[in-house]
């Protein structure tokens, strides 16, 4: 898979069919991968595809000028399609390498499972249903599905929907919706006051680093409303009130665009369960308007059109 990608990407650059290749490279810490963006053929040797390719790369083509060859997983491909709907990227400017995905390893979960820091793991290999690790020189085997991101349990499209070249064979969804919605159901079981207190506590931790916004492929405003100072909608310093308002508005801005790629939560340095907001809105948008994110690249964005029959039983 990796070799085919390197070969095809090399060809694209050589023939001048793309200006950039956007893929995954080795990270600075063992196991971790980081985005590899290049226009030089010799850098392509560094491309990797493994169960640790967590980043959603789909926001890079928005910022890169020119044609881009990009590597996407199932969820990323839907983000990319959503960006096409919003006319932020053009399909003809992209050459998409699809990676059928059986789930991506959540390094936090993995660290918990092996009871050690990730940098003590020197090697990891997915073998069938298991992940075989070398920890401090000894071999360890753990079930793969125990360490993947929560979002992956609810993934209905593990194989990218939009691609020019599929690396590997299609993967059938392996759904465990209940597990992926566990936290949301837990929250819905609380009463309003408890829920509010829960979010209040979570957003007291927020340091307003804007990591969630910066990593989000659906957050493509050139000037974010938090950076606007006439009028200043939210304070620029961190108070839980403004942090919460900021995130609620962000949630509404990305509703109908969010493919539940989970990058916001992964990027959050203080561990706020942001997916519980975003995923909830994915469900709501589907329930209200029957809109699934990133399925049809020619469909209009959900909030730029309407139906006369849209639900309005909440209007009094």
């Amino acid at each position: 898979m990796e070799n085919r990608l390197k070969e095809e990407a090399g060809k694209l650059l050589k023939e001048g069919k793309v200006d950039y290749i956007v893929g995954y490279g080795k990270g600075t810490v063992n196991l971790r991968t980081s985005p590899l963006i290049t226009n030089k053929e010799e850098d392509l040797e560094g491309l990797v595809i493994n169960p640790f390719i967590a980043n959603n790369l789909s926001r890079y083509p928005v910022e890169l000028k020119g044609r881009v060859g990009i590597v996407v997983k199932g969820c990323d491909s839907r983000s990319l399609t959503s960006l096409m709907q919003d006319k932020k990227v053009k399909r003809e400017d992209l050459i998409i390498f699809g990676v059928p995905c059986e789930g991506v390893v959540d390094l936090k979960k993995l660290a918990g499972q092996i009871g050690a820091e990730i940098d003590r793991v020197t090697d990891a290999e997915k073998e069938g249903e298991n992940l075989t690790l070398q920890v401090d020189g000894s071999k360890k085997t753990i079930p793969f599905r125990d360490v993947i991101f929560d979002k992956c349990y609810g993934c209905e499209h593990p194989t990218p929907l939009e691609y020019d070249m599929l690396l590997g064979s299609e993967v059938a969804p392996n759904l465990d919706i209940e597990k992926s919605l566990e936290r949301i159901k837990e929250l819905e079981g609380m009463d309003a006051q408890e829920r509010w207190n829960y979010w209040k506590e979570q957003f007291s931790k927020c340091i307003r680093c804007y990591g969630c916004r910066n990593v989000c492929p659906a957050c493509f405003c050139e000037r974010c409303f938090v950076d606007v100072n006439m009028p200043q909608w939210v304070a620029t310093y961190a108070t839980w009130q403004d942090n919460l308002t900021f995130q609620l508005i962000r949630t509404l801005h990305v509703a109908g665009r969010c493919s539940d790629c989970g990058e916001c939560e992964r990027a959050c340095p203080v561990g706020i369960p942001l997916r519980s907001l975003q995923r909830k809105m994915v469900e709501e948008v589907k329930d209200l308007f029957g809109h699934e994110v990133g399925i049809d690249k020619d469909a209009p964005p959900v909030f730029s059109h309407y139906e006369a029959t849209d639900p309005d039983e909440f209007m009094k």
Binding site: W199, L288, D310
Partner: peptide, 28 residues
């Protein structure tokens, strides 16, 4: 019509985070 779509999700989100539904109302 556009507003109605927005209001529908705002309504659901505010309820979800624990704002009492009586506090925010949309009418025609």
């Amino acid at each position: 019509f556009h507003a109605r779509r927005k209001f529908a999700v705002i309504n659901r989100l505010l309820k979800y985070v624990g704002i009492e539904p009586e506090r925010v109302q949309f009418s025609w």
